[in-house]
């Protein structure tokens, strides 16, 4: 499956992760500020769901640019290594999250056989990413201890965040690249 990715692709995926990381550096501050703001209401984990669309952007973005099997997954994993060495605030879990989020967004493209990249694919990647990451967090991040109202709030927030950043923003970027004909 990973045979068709060539050297140029891999360099590009690494760079895309760095780009997302650089642009989100500001958003990283945002995460901390939003967390602090939401803490008194006990809604701090919401910060995670609000911004998750940003963290997972490198995957689908790579998927649209390098339309090959494995590009989302590898991009997320490479990105997690970049983040870990670059000053990761979340330590070793970064790589594990990277793998998990990579699989989640990769499946969105796999379902469509890596052939459909229009607005349909936005729906499929949004759904797979939201559901899989949510299930993961259920087991891993103590979501299982929350009341069901809280869970619904977290789920909806996550869905919207992923739809806006992984879906809409990513597709807009891909459209611009298409228009510039640089993706021969």
């Amino acid at each position: 499956m990973f045979k068709s990715l060539n050297l140029k692709n891999i360099i590009l995926m690494t760079l895309i992760s760095i780009i997302c990381g650089t642009i989100f550096w500001i958003a990283g501050f945002l995460y901390n500020i939003v967390t602090i703001a939401l803490t008194p209401m006990g809604l701090a984990p919401l910060a995670n769901d609000l911004l998750i669309g940003l963290w997972t952007m490198a995957g689908p973005l790579s998927g649209y640019i390098i339309k090959k099997a494995g590009s989302s997954l590898i991009a997320e994993v490479l990105g997690s290594f970049v983040e870990m060495f670059w000053g990761g605030q979340w330590g070793a879990s970064t790589v594990i999250s990277g793998i998990e989020q990579g699989i989640a967004s990769e499946l969105g493209f796999t379902i469509l056989g890596y052939k459909i990249y229009g607005w349909v694919s936005i729906i499929s990647t949004t759904i797979t990413t939201t559901i899989i990451t949510f299930i993961w967090d259920w087991f891993r991040n103590g979501y299982s201890a929350y009341s069901y109202q809280m869970l619904i709030l977290l789920f909806i927030t996550r869905l919207v965040s992923i739809f806006v950043f992984n879906g809409i923003l990513t597709k807009l970027i891909a459209n611009l690249l298409e228009k510039s004909t640089i993706l021969k």
Binding site: I36, L38, T39, M41, G42, A44, P45, Y146, S147
Partner: peptide, 11 residues
Amino acid sequence: VGIFMSQNMYG
């Protein structure tokens, strides 16, 4: 702190 508050209130 965020986790503590949140789990105390909703978990």
